[in-house]
Write a protein that binds this DNA or RNA. Structure first.
Lengths: 335, 335
DNA sequence: ATGAAAGCGCTAACAG
DNA sequence: CTGTTAGCGCTTTCAT
């Protein structure tokens, strides 16, 4: 069944050169004569030789695999956020020729950092302790989507506060004054900060957020329905809603459309993410786009650098989100 | 910054035992005196020692990492299917103490199988060649969601043909005769087989599928809208629709609801997957549940066995989907 | 129950 | 440009 594993010696023997030469050609070291290179390549092909990665890592002393740890709470995995991150990180690893080993964790079971050269934390909901332990053992790591300033780690995040402001500013400038928000979970930095940016902006305009217009969501579609019911019952219906994720915004839209509310004529809705689903529905969703893919790329690049240089020069990177105007917001109808 | 990597020698020295003994305790070999065990454990803890996985794998001669290769076509990643698979496989790996290294591939760039002990193919859309190459080099592998009988590989799949029948049978038994289908992509086995099961069932009832009622979708929400438009224009509107994914079914539902069509009174809709999103909308979606998580688990178990036993006894496993009745289907109104 | 020693497959000085 | 040689950190006989 499984044929004898063939090793570098087999190749060397067949090509009639030393294993060093073989090693050189498989590692693209230039100092090999064309003749030898050809012989080795022939042997490699004929034998279908693939270097043993474990041996390489051991000999080289560096591990070119990175761990990606995802928070394991239910639903994360069905979020656009997580998927984009995985895609982006996967893609970057591919181009940097690193392996990406995947960990889903609920924050309880400690993860192994010893099988990888470093780890990327895709947000740290409940696994702050794991980050600390990684830092303590000197495992290179970078954190995504969280500003962590009390630990010696690099991170790349999104300027969520600014994103919240952006949304508020747009709605406000369209003339809206009765504005509601379905925030993200306050267990996440993103949730808090988007809310904060949004709230503070409105306060600055002397148009502070009405209590009835605040709903703490969790980025999921399900909670958006509950929020919608709440807004419907408010003394005065809001004329605009900011949802901290497109998923929520989309569900809001579906809900109000079902109720016969015209969008955007009677109600403006703005989301957050720039999920491709924005384009599918009956009304294209205006949103705040966050550069998820870019964030993923940068995190890999950072980690790669740390691993290669074998030392950590702390870096912080904050990417700015931007407004993407589509069809779901219109000037305020009232007055 | 990064403290000197500590190795098994350091532990042995500190515990005043041989490295062999240290190796024994970290591998839970019983033949170690309590006294020595305690000393070693103390040293391991004090030094925060973590065994070097590459060295272990090299010495042991087996690699307990598995590769998961996902087709890279756009959208796959936003599908419930992919996500559940990743979750299930991740989970199983965790319990079997294996690493899961992730590969997203478009079928062009060959993947490395030499850094893992085996690989799981989550469907094989465009990467049939990669499967062949894996098989050729003796890399243990198992395929998900495809029956591959012309290659010496194990697979675990879903009885999609039966799933299609199930949907047709349910709709037919509710009295529907004008039944439409939004199939999955015919580039996928699942797409073809669900369609086939569905079509053949109706043929058997002497109620063959009307050409106008067939739409080849791709599992995505977007295409469901196009399908809906087509059905709307049909000479006679169907009274029931089977969609080969819940995503499509949900979008269909949203579309018709917008148009004022009552569901299920005027139109029955049945999906496929049992995506949790089935429950969110205004009308809970009746669907065909496929045991994705189970399929994932089984695939890991199979692969693990092959890797451990170092030999491949081919196995084929076909899991059955089942009908989940909720609110989106009702008896046919006509007549 | 314990340890010495021989690898696992590869890389990286080093010498030529 | 090429080969010899000494490890990388761990497991695993084989003695003791």
């Amino acid at each position: 069944m499984s044929q004898k594993k063939i090793s570098i010696d087999d190749v060397a023997r067949r090509a009639k050169v030393s294993i060093t030469t073989v090693s050189r050609v498989i590692n693209n070291v230039p100092t090999v004569s064309n003749k030898n290179r050809a012989k080795v390549e022939e042997a490699v092909a004929a034998l279908k030789f693939k270097p043993n990665v474990s041996a390489q890592r051991l000999a080289r002393g560096v591990n070119n695999a990175i761990g990606l740890v995802m928070p394991g709470y239910p639903g994360i995995f069905h979020s656009f956020y997580a998927i984009e991150l995985v895609r982006g990180i996967g893609h970057s690893c591919e181009t940097l020729r690193m392996d990406m080993v995947f960990h889903i964790t609920n924050g309880f079971n400690p993860i192994n950092n010893n099988n990888v050269g470093g780890v990327i934390f895709a947000d740290i909901i409940e696994n702050r302790k794991q980050v600390e332990s990684a830092v303590a053992t000197g495992t290179p790591c970078v954190i995504i989507n969280n500003k962590v300033d009390d630990l010696d780690v690099s991170y790349v995040s999104i300027h969520n506060h600014f994103g919240g402001e952006l949304a508020a500013d747009y709605l406000y400038s369209l003339g809206h004054r009765d504005i509601a928000i379905v925030s993200g979970s306050f267990n996440t930095q993103a949730g808090i900060q988007r809310f904060d940016g949004f709230r503070k902006y409105l306060e600055k305009q002397n148009n502070p957020l009405n209590e009835e217009y605040i709903f703490e969501g969790d980025y999921s579609r399900r909670c958006a329905r509950v929020a919608a019911e709440q807004f419907l019952k408010a003394k005065k219906r809001p004329t605009a809603i900011f949802a901290a994720s497109d998923e929520m915004a989309l569900e809001l839209m579906a809900f109000f459309l079902e109720k016969g509310v015209k969008i955007p004529e009677e109600l403006s809705i703005i989301g957050f993410d720039d999920n491709p689903a924005c384009l599918y529905g009956p009304v294209a969703l205006t949103t705040i786009k966050q550069p998820l893919f870019k964030m993923a790329e940068e995190s890999v690049r950072m980690l790669h650098k740390i691993i290669q240089e074998q030392k950590h020069v702390r870096k912080k990177l904050i990417l700015k989100p931007e407004l993407v105007i589509r069809e779901s917001c219109a000037p305020c109808p009232k007055k």
